[in-house]
Nucleic acid binder design. Structure first.
Length: 416
DNA sequence: TCTGGGGTCCTAGGACCC
DNA sequence: TCTGGGGTCCTAGGACCC
């Protein structure tokens, strides 16, 4: 049996832990650049605020109901997520961290009342971390997902542990709420008279295979209670790593783009080092504002191949800047840039190049020093000069809460 | 004025090989 | 009259997830 643990309205819940005045009132958290709504309290949902909706479109409603608005504070959410996962590990050694706010636990072989066991997990996470969670239990991951949705509307835990309950759960789940069915497939399925998860299980598997590939077929099996998606307890190394951002202010200035692109390239290098990998391809893209009525949308990108795979800031920044020079066109207002590294391999499986001009050991020791200084004194303490200050282009984050758990100056003061 | 930032997997079709 | 059959690899595009 699988249990899916999902934190309720996770980012909002994190904000509430350190700011209890937010309890019981509508709260939303925005995406980077304070652009879209990406987390909503139940009160905000009840007001009709939608997921991924641009916040400027709902300004009136937000003011009218005094909705509390926050910029994303990923340092806080990442740290809280880590604490939740560590706590969950006490309850099952077999755990897959599926996303920042979700984890699958393997409950098979445990001699416990699963419902009670999971209610206890909820109590512990609530008490120790202040984060509300819901847990769904089922014979497959897809059924656990469905159980989780039902759990949230009821007592926080729901178990699909009989044919009768499976039947009931599937009949009461809309097809677009099923894991693996997105907008396109939902439209297709509804057009063919499939409105619920139950209808889906009654459909001919040949038809599913033909219209939804093997992914659809796998889902069909899973909803019948036959597990096809195993628990992945070790996180596989990433195959692509990206750092991309929209700018706070559009810019035509190549100096700003150089700062941004080198900052993103260095960020990718850091992510590579953390998973002990090296990459051989570097892709850089820049594009103008896709929503503008005044200018035509234009987007440019190019991929460079390194002579030797690397995870050094210096190498990746150098390559990324060369890419930028090749794709940059003057007199355009750029809105966003990004760096993606791919062809990623483990650092040990290194394929050297006889004619490489850089000394790999030297670059590695530079990375070690900068990483340790930046860990100790905060990100950005030591960086390449080309990365600049970001003053001209950095994100808008006007409503950022403090780094309650990650910075000394963010710690809550009591009394005073 | 104002619209996020990451990822994964699958398939079809073309190029190329013998 | 008549023009094979089987592979692999790569890429772009489309679907999905949070």
């Amino acid at each position: 049996m699988f249990a899916l643990v999902d934190c309720n309205n996770f980012y909002v819940s994190c904000e509430r832990v350190f700011n209890p005045r937010l309890e019981g009132v509508p709260v939303v958290v925005l995406s980077n650049n304070d652009g879209c709504i990406i987390s909503r309290s139940n009160e905000a949902k009840a007001l009709g605020l939608k997921m991924a909706e641009p916040v400027f479109k709902r300004k009136d409603l937000i003011e009218q109901h005094n909705v509390q608005v926050f910029s994303s504070n990923y340092a806080l959410y990442g740290d809280m997520s880590h604490r939740v996962m560590e706590t969950l590990k006490r309850f099952s050694p077999h755990i897959e961290i599926y996303s920042i706010d979700e984890a699958f636990l393997d409950l098979s072989g445990m001699e416990v009342d699963q419902y009670e066991y999971c209610q206890n997990i909820r109590r512990v996470i609530q008490k120790e971390l202040g984060i509300p969670i819901g847990i769904g239990i089922g014979a497959t991951k897809s059924l656990a997902k469905i159980a989780n949705k039902i759990a949230k509307k009821n007592e926080g835990v729901f178990t699909i542990d009989s044919e009768r309950k499976r039947d009931w759960a599937l009949r009461n789940t809309q097809i677009d709420d099923v894991w693996g069915v997105g907008r396109q497939y939902a439209t297709l399925l509804k057009r063919n008279g499939i409105g619920t998860a139950y209808d889906f299980t009654q459909q001919n598997p040949e038809w599913i295979r033909k219209n939804m590939t093997v992914m659809g077929l796998r889902l069909w099996e899973e909803l019948h209670g036959r597990s096809c998606i195993p628990l992945e307890t070790v996180m596989p190394a990433k195959k692509n790593i990206a750092t991309t951002r929209a700018f706070g202010k559009k810019t035509a200035n190549i100096e700003n783009l150089r700062e941004a692109v080198s900052t993103y390239a260095a960020a990718c290098a850091g992510k590579l080092r953390r998973q002990k990998s090296i990459a051989r391809y570097v892709t850089v893209f820049i594009h103008t504002d896709p929503f503008s009525d005044r200018e035509r949308y234009q987007s440019f990108s190019i991929t460079a191949t390194l002579s030797e795979a690397s995870n050094s800031d210096i190498i990746l920044v150098e390559a990324a800047l060369k890419c930028l020079e090749q794709i940059f066109r003057p007199n355009l207002l750029y809105k966003k840039a990004g760096v993606i590294v791919s062809e990623i391999t483990k650092g040990e499986a290194f394929q050297g190049n006889l004619f490489e001009k850089h000394n790999r050991e030297k670059l590695d020791s530079i990375s070690k020093v900068t990483d340790s200084l930046n860990n100790q004194y905060g990100r950005g303490t030591l960086k390449l000069a080309i990365q600049g200050s970001g003053k001209e282009w950095k994100l808008k984050q006007e409503k950022l809460s403090p780094g309650y758990t990650t910075r000394w100056d963010g710690i809550i003061e009591v009394g005073g």
